[in-house]
């Protein structure tokens, strides 16, 4: 099973892939409307906002946790 290079989510169904295209290496949540992959800053911001919304974390803590997660992912290696 493929794992999204930008957020690490396993992609088990066609609908998990960006634009439903199983040849893509990133998931539906990491794609922009035109199907291209979100930039590093876009992805980081959306993950930080999501972490604050769903877990109520302090912004600085959320940013550190997101950076720590993104550091492990193939799409963002060049940013660390």
């Amino acid at each position: 099973m493929k794992t999204c290079i930008a957020c690490g989510m396993p992609m088990k169904k066609e609908s998990d892939f960006a634009m439903g295209d199983t040849s893509k290496a990133y998931c539906i949540y990491c794609a922009k409307e035109d199907g291209s992959m979100q930039s590093f800053e876009e992805k980081k911001q959306s993950l930080v906002n999501f972490t604050i919304k769903t877990q109520g974390l302090d912004k600085a803590v959320a940013e550190k946790a997101v950076e720590n997660m993104m550091r492990q992912l193939p799409a963002w290696k060049a940013f660390f």
Partner: peptide, 16 residues
């Protein structure tokens, strides 16, 4: 602690 937060993020993603 950050790894722990990221473990919880997957749960919060699905619960959300």
């Amino acid at each position: 602690k950050y790894v722990f937060i990221n473990i919880q993020s997957v749960v919060s993603f699905h619960l959300n």
